[in-house]
Design a protein around this nucleic acid. Sequence first.
DNA 1: ATAAAGTCTATTGACTAAGTAGACTTTAAG
DNA 2: CTTAAAGTCTACTTAGTCAATAGACTTTAT
Lengths: 169, 169
Amino acid sequence: MKVSQKGLYALQALMMLARHYHQGAIKIREVAYEEDLPEKFLELILLELKNARIVESVRGAKGGYQLRRPPAEIFLSEIIRLIDGPLAPFGDADSLRELIDRDSNHRSLYMVFLQVRDAAAKILDSTSLADLLHESDTHGSGAKKRSRKKKEGSVLPMVVHGSKAPYES
Amino acid sequence: MKVSQKGLYALQALMMLARHYHQGAIKIREVAYEEDLPEKFLELILLELKNARIVESVRGAKGGYQLRRPPAEIFLSEIIRLIDGPLAPFGDADSLRELIDRDSNHRSLYMVFLQVRDAAAKILDSTSLADLLHESDTHGSGAKKRSRKKKEGSVLPMVVHGSKAPYES
DNA sequence: ATAAAGTCTATTGACTAAGTAGACTTTAAG
DNA sequence: CTTAAAGTCTACTTAGTCAATAGACTTTAT
């Protein structure tokens, strides 16, 4: 699974709209300015998000975009699937299950791919825009413990930064 | 993280060489035939694997390729990183850690990306070619339980097929 | 009416993916 | 020492994708 530049822009734009969730329609230009995104490109992205019913638009003067659902009900998996496709590292979950059933010589390889996709799905299906906001509007200095009520399902608070993964990249 | 067609070919070719680990150099043509891979393309892939010191070649008549290390010491993460780049869904682990430190507005988003990459790394760093072989040379009919000695670190035996992930893809 | 906004279609330039082609080098065997 | 069989290396191609940009069109508040 790869998140493209476009996918990142989409996530940033949605986080911005989530921050301003109470404030009615936000102009493309404001989103682009606040998140430093190319305006014309952002336009296409928001259109796509609109067609997917994640945001809605108000046309004409005083128009703009807003989320169609509360930030706590918009999950990263949904956005990433929309913009960048399946979460699986190869093909998609269905085709992998097909291959696991049919291609006996490479079954175990495809099973590993499916495991990887399931691990990604578990994280991305349980992280919402709201989860991201609650973590990140504390700007800069890393307070080690915040007494934030731990939301059910969010996996974010468990992150320990200095984890030192085995290899790199 | 995305595994390309080329990455899949590389993994298939290496699995084939792992299956024939005892038998000296195997010709490109034989690998291509047995795994049904495009011969000329496979040539380039094997060359790349050779430069990365994963396989070695024997030139001239009677030449071919063989693994440089036992199958149990070649991990999927190594191959995938070589052919398809970093495991992270965006950028690589280092750049993500940089962003987590520097970009306070999107910190939590990058932390999620890093979590996804860590989850993938955990699986792919602990699955070797040998693990794949032990699972898959049982051709066809799905024997539910095999009394295979469970190798330390391999995550494969824990896979339950009918797991029904939340969404698709 | 007009200006400010979103909508839609097309185009671009750079890059990558997935091969293919062909000349070159090395080696075993006769 | 010639030859055939193998790997090596460089170049090319063809199609597609990515990250935009351009510009005409439509809708709406004032």
